[in-house]
Design a protein around this nucleic acid. Structure first.
Lengths: 232, 232
DNA sequence: CAGGAAAAATGCGCACACGCAAGTTTGCGT
DNA sequence: ACGCAAACTTGCGTGTGCGCATTTTTCCTG
């Protein structure tokens, strides 16, 4: 029912397909239900049975979409951040440094968070299991990033003998993970006040961009070299 | 209150305390039991109850050491590969390029495998769950690698504002993961013969070093820059 | 439009991971 | 040597992840 943004950067989907649409609707219903119930009753007081019931599917079907309960909750926040980062990189003009394009795209996508994200992040920070799942989700940006980087440096993606794009993408994912990890552990992020309705910006996101830039900076020379090698 | 720092990068425990020794013995007993039973009866036909019984502990205690069944089996192979890589890096003379030191250390530790490792790898390649657990285990080299890299480039490890060492270590781990992943998927590695007792060298390890070097090569410029920055 | 193949949803069952609250062992201080 | 405190082990109970077989839904083709 919403925007077809899940198409960005890929070569798939000539027709949308009715079946896939319903599948995606179910997935989003599970996502939203998981997050809503987690915020409402607390992360530990929500069972998969509740989430499945709220989404109108059987508990068994729920596990066909998400491998863990934490994954579903976190998925509501990370959602299509993965493809957005890759799309943001592809949107940059071809003239700029690849390292800069990637850095700016990552910072842009990780700092432009909606109001609902902050509420969810407050929840995620509390429980360790959710925090780990959230950090693991950063690895999801690797495949689309690999594709866009490979195109930039002129590398065939399937070639196992030329893993430069994959390595760079994985390194970016690792750097982002480190930055976010440090940010979540920082004292500024440790806020109490779980009461909903207060609104307001509880989580300061100011230092996140700094952490992201600091974590991505060491990789810049590797990007420069890869880009230089592509030009030759 | 004893020494909080767990001998990062140094050798192992001359007088470590009697308790820790027993703990490590239990861990190794679980490791060996898990691997032995997995090879003997097949990976799917071994329950945690069997492993715990073979190691002489309760099933609940088993879960105090390993979070999953696959982790225990894989742990028998990965064991202390983590500290060995870091130690191998530290063993290189200070004159050589850091990138070369890391690359050679990784290749050295991942290709020098005993006879028992091959038998285990044959088992791991078969089942997807074990393969994933094995790949996830490569992330374990990150902490010790971070320590040794931080020392080389003169960075304080706890400083969140200077995450260069952590990022580089994580990138190396990611590169290794990619290399091993590609190696395990390669047709040479895909050996049939599920029947135990046949033995013999089915898995050729020749191309693994090539894959490792190819995956680590793109990161070399990042290491050079970090090392150059440390000199100034 | 009918029929069949492919894919997804569902029900069932089993083993597993882990929190909790005991009981047991180890180490340390006086 | 004695006893206390911390660390480790263990039993129990619950929710969960997932393989397998069956039923229902979607899609394609003659």
């Amino acid at each position: 029912m919403r925007s077809p943004v899940w198409n960005a950067g890929a070569v798939t989907t000539p027709p949308p397909g009715l079946r896939e649409r319903k599948k995606q609707a179910t997935r989003e219903a599970l996502r939203e239900a998981a997050l809503r119930l987690a915020v409402q009753h607390g992360p530990d007081d929500v069972r998969v049975e509740d989430i499945a019931e709220a989404a109108g599917v059987s508990p068994r079907t729920y596990n066909n979409y998400f491998a863990s309960r934490e994954q579903a909750i976190v998925s509501a926040v990370t959602a299509d951040r993965e493809v957005r980062v890759a799309a943001a990189v592809a949107a940059r003009p071809a003239g700029v440094r690849l390292a800069d394009a990637v850095t700016e795209a990552v910072v842009e996508q990780y700092t432009n968070t909606g109001e609902r994200e902050h509420e969810a992040l407050l929840l995620i920070t509390a429980r360790t299991a959710l925090r780990d799942a959230f950090l693991d989700a950063t690895a999801g940006i690797e495949p689309p990033l690999t594709a866009v980087i490979a195109e930039r440096i002129g590398e065939r993606i399937g070639d196992a003998a030329a893993p430069t794009a994959r390595v760079l993408a994985a390194s970016v994912a690792a750097a982002v993970r480190i930055a976010v990890d440090g940010w979540l552990r920082s004292p500024e992020t440790a806020g109490g006040a779980g009461s909903p309705g207060t609104g307001g910006l509880v989580v300061p996101s100011g230092s996140l961009s700094d952490r992201l830039r600091a974590a991505l900076a060491p990789l810049a020379p590797a990007f420069d070299a890869a880009e230089r090698g592509a030009r030759q």
